[in-house]
Design a protein around this nucleic acid. Structure first.
Lengths: 335, 335
DNA sequence: CTCCTCAGGTTACACGCGTTAACCAGCATC
DNA sequence: GATGCTGGTTAACGCGTGTAACCTGAGGAG
């Protein structure tokens, strides 16, 4: 009946049962190692053999449908918004969650608003949703997810997020750390790079706010400058840089900082003499730039801790609060 | 009965039916806009209203269980192995697949071998699996996935992969392009950076092979040099660089190239006088380094094309072959 | 009045799995 | 010989959906 010869009927546990000459239940007992019912060694062997022979793999969806809970952990985040720093962290987190028996998955969909996003995530009925971008959980979005049976919502954010477990992580303190350093170094005209890439705007606004909160206490000015991560955009910015009258810039993160520093130098603008540059994330290549890049190092809570928290949140419904460490400025040649 | 007050019973279509005072089937007809069965405007309105009021979201797993096919597209790849170049591409691909009604998802699990990996992917019963790393599809792995009902296997690889649709993408040609350039520039002792990061080894070996195939036709030597993306590793390498006797290096990609170039310069080694450096991917900051980085630009097939191909593969079981364009060397100051 | 049509709606089943009550054979105990 | 127990197996149900098949009542044609 199959129209497509390349796609034979998928193998189910019933097929295994048939081949082994037992009932489907017995197959389930063997494959899941159920202790409450004992199975003779010979039939166990027959079942295992049949499963291997057919290449049987259980159907995760059917299983969680029956069990009433899934082992999926969803991380909404565009891949490019995940910087180098965080990408290793994310990989490690995936491994940790694996060890706990969860399947971590990253989804990069772009949605018009928080509720449609939440609806899309809810369709997958994950056990947990982990958002690095805390404000994706509006109250309605959180409510929607809860009603869809999502056990745990974990948000990285400065302020506690209603209806979600929050990991304290304040982007404003990053901007503040950079601003304090620049002011201490005698700079007064501080530019702040606002990246135009998708998914970064929320973070950028918070980091800018951090700079502003510090500058407000001193005789200094803040100038946001838009910058897209593209050659054209950065050379344009470098050309009109002298007209901005700035002697310092906090560049959002090390990647933007490296980009901007290169373009400024190509225009004959000296770093740090004409302008001090500070990045964030303390990426590996930053110390090797010329001049070495000053940066704000941030410490995320360890992947193991986060995985544990997520696990407890799913099982018990609550978990102790997690903190990242305070951002620390690493002073190098660029400032 | 619910022990956890924060987790009310998940909303199902039955709840919607109850509230609207109709049968579950009617709910399904309304929510899916089924044309074959008509339903009066008043009841339609009642159903939609009830659904909104309860915040109902369909259960994707149950739906695909019933339908016999899922709309999940799985991309196995560690986040950190996805370079900057590819990360934008991946994001765009996700958006394209969204437009086709698929849910694209990235999984960063690390597995001991291809078959266990395939088993883990198969549990999710995706409609398609897209591997940038072609050799993840061993014949047995491909067979396993097919038997689990995965409709489409798409692999980026140089040679056609058995049991999978292949997008021609030959990492060796990247290495070859770099080597040809370096040799044309008169270099004879060519180092090749082998990154130690997870998920990159397969690509690295192919790029190395590409270099070797070119060098074999000339009076030149190839020296693979291991390099982890870490400060310690790169400074160590830079210190012992003079002892290697190389006058050129192909650095796997622009990120490793930037890292290595910085470390070499810190050791007083001049680029390009003492050593020519070539990267790959033509990332945005590369042209702004000092000196500007020579690189191999690669053109991936457009995300839209790949999404179309995937769609046809799932629907029809076959699709026209896709080609990326040939890699092109961009000559700048570092070589 | 009877028969048919047709819009509007419902019932029942299947998808693949885990679980639980029930059944059965054999063997020891009273 | 009836009763209980133990190891081994099975039929049956439910998870949330989509849909084929069936039902009902009203209106029109004969």
């Amino acid at each position: 009946m199959a129209k497509d010869p390349t796609t034979p009927a998928p193998v189910t546990s019933a097929d295994v049962a048939r081949l082994a000459g037992v009932s489907r239940a017995t197959v389930s007992f063997v494959l899941n190692g159920t202790q409450t019912h004992r199975v003779s060694d010979t039939t166990r062997a027959r079942v295992l053999d049949a499963a291997r022979q057919l290449g049987y793999v259980p159907h995760a969806a059917a299983r969680s449908l029956r069990a009433g809970r899934s082992n999926l952990v969803l991380m909404p985040a565009s891949v490019s918004a995940v910087g180098r720093l965080v990408s290793n962290w994310v990989d490690d987190l995936h491994s940790e969650l694996d060890r706990h028996g969860y399947i971590a998955v990253l989804h990069a969909g772009r949605f018009p608003d928080a509720v449609t996003a939440a609806r899309a995530w809810a369709e997958l009925r994950p056990a947990a949703v982990l958002a690095m971008d805390g404000d994706r959980f509006t109250p309605q979005a959180a409510d929607l997810l809860r009603r869809a049976g999502v056990q745990a919502l974990l948000a990285f954010a400065a302020e506690p997020v209603k209806g979600a477990h929050t990991v304290a992580f304040d982007h404003r303190r990053i901007g503040a750390a950079a601003a304090e350093h620049l002011i201490a170094r005698g700079r007064r005209g501080i530019g702040v790079v606002m990246p135009q890439e998708r998914g970064l705007d929320a973070f950028a606004r918070l980091r800018l706010a951090g700079v502003e909160s510090v500058v407000a206490r001193h005789m200094a000015t803040v100038t946001p400058v838009d910058l897209a991560y593209a050659r054209q955009s950065v050379t344009d910015l470098a050309k009109r840089w002298p007209s901005l009258g700035l002697d310092a810039v906090f560049a959002y993160n090390d990647e933007y900082a490296a980009l901007l520093m290169g373009a400024l130098q190509d225009e004959g603008i000296s770093v740090p003499d004409d302008v001090a540059v500070v990045g964030a994330d303390d990426l590996v290549p930053s110390a090797l730039l010329n001049p070495p890049l000053s940066t704000v190092r941030l410490d995320l809570p360890s992947p193991a801790e986060v995985a544990d928290t997520l696990h407890q949140l799913i099982e018990r419904g609550s978990a102790p609060v997690l903190h990242g460490m305070s951002p620390v400025l690493v002073h190098r040649g660029s400032s």
